[in-house]
């Protein structure tokens, strides 16, 4: 029932205003006299509510693509619109604001601050988003409850398992209600049980209408997405519905 409703929401939003719109995007790195073209002529549209996996071997440019999508880096050529906003010309301060408001990050290494408790970690993005202190705590607790860690609010990352740590990171990504959840190899450091755990959580969030871009090199993980974008040598080689979806197996 919920599944059907979510699918409805998804199909309604796909094709309307895209969350991500990259046109002719390219990125060239310069190290002294040496130029390295990490990404070229990438055209990519991702609509609201989509669940997209970006796959490719290491060195393919998928990390660069993720940095560009995540506004952690800027394009050399082409244009990038995120949730309707052209961000190719923004300053560092404006990029920080976009990251804060529009994007939730989940990293392979979790990137939790070891000295802070779970809820303090989840609170972090709100510290930079002018959310009043009382509301910050409330929302942090809500987010942790949503990822099933309502009983671990005061535990520090060192006291949590890898899977739990990654769920704290997911809660931190969610807490600002971003337009886009960007997960970079989120299961890369997890055992199979925790992997299943975190992927189920992402599925659930996507089911609730959240746009997710997942970067991975594992086909099993990519199979959770609706759509798979394959990157090789800095270019998009294929862009098609995922094998898992086509088979109808979820």
């Amino acid at each position: 029932m919920a599944e059907a409703l979510a699918a409805q929401v998804r199909s309604a939003s796909v094709g309307t205003e895209p969350v991500i719109e990259l046109v002719g995007a390219g990125k060239t790195y310069r190290t002294g006299a040496i130029e390295f073209e990490a990404l070229r002529e990438v055209d990519l549209r991702i609509g609201a509510g989509e669940y997209v996996a970006v796959v490719g071997p290491s060195g393919s440019g998928k990390s660069t693509l993720m940095h560009l999508i995540g506004c952690l880096d800027t394009l050399t050529v082409g244009s990038y619109r995120l949730a309707g906003e052209d961000i190719s010309e923004l300053t560092e301060v404006e990029l920080a604001r976009i990251r804060n408001h529009r994007i939730g990050f989940v990293f392979q290494q979790f990137h939790l601050l070891p000295s802070l408790s779970a809820w303090r970690n989840v609170e972090l993005p709100m510290l930079y988003g002018r959310v009043p202190p009382g509301e910050r705590r409330e929302r942090a607790v809500d987010a942790l409850e949503r990822v099933g860690l309502g009983d671990k609010l005061h535990n520090r990352p060192g006291e949590l398992s890898g899977g739990q740590q990654q769920r704290v990171a997911v809660a931190r990504a969610l807490v600002g209600e971003p337009d886009l959840l960007l997960a970079d190899e989120p299961t890369g450091n997890l055992d199979s049980a925790s992997t299943a755990d975190v992927l189920a959580l992402l599925d659930e969030l996507n089911g609730q209408g959240r746009t997710i871009v997942l970067i991975t090199h594992e086909p099993d993980v990519a199979a959770h997405a609706d759509r798979v974008v394959r990157v090789l040598d800095g270019q998009v080689r294929s862009d098609e519905p995922s094998a898992g979806r086509r088979a109808g197996a979820r």
């Binding site: 995540g70 560092e92 990251r99 601050l113």
Partner: peptide, 9 residues
Amino acid sequence: LRKALGAPP
């Protein structure tokens, strides 16, 4: 990390 989460310089 703080920067990624939106901390301006």
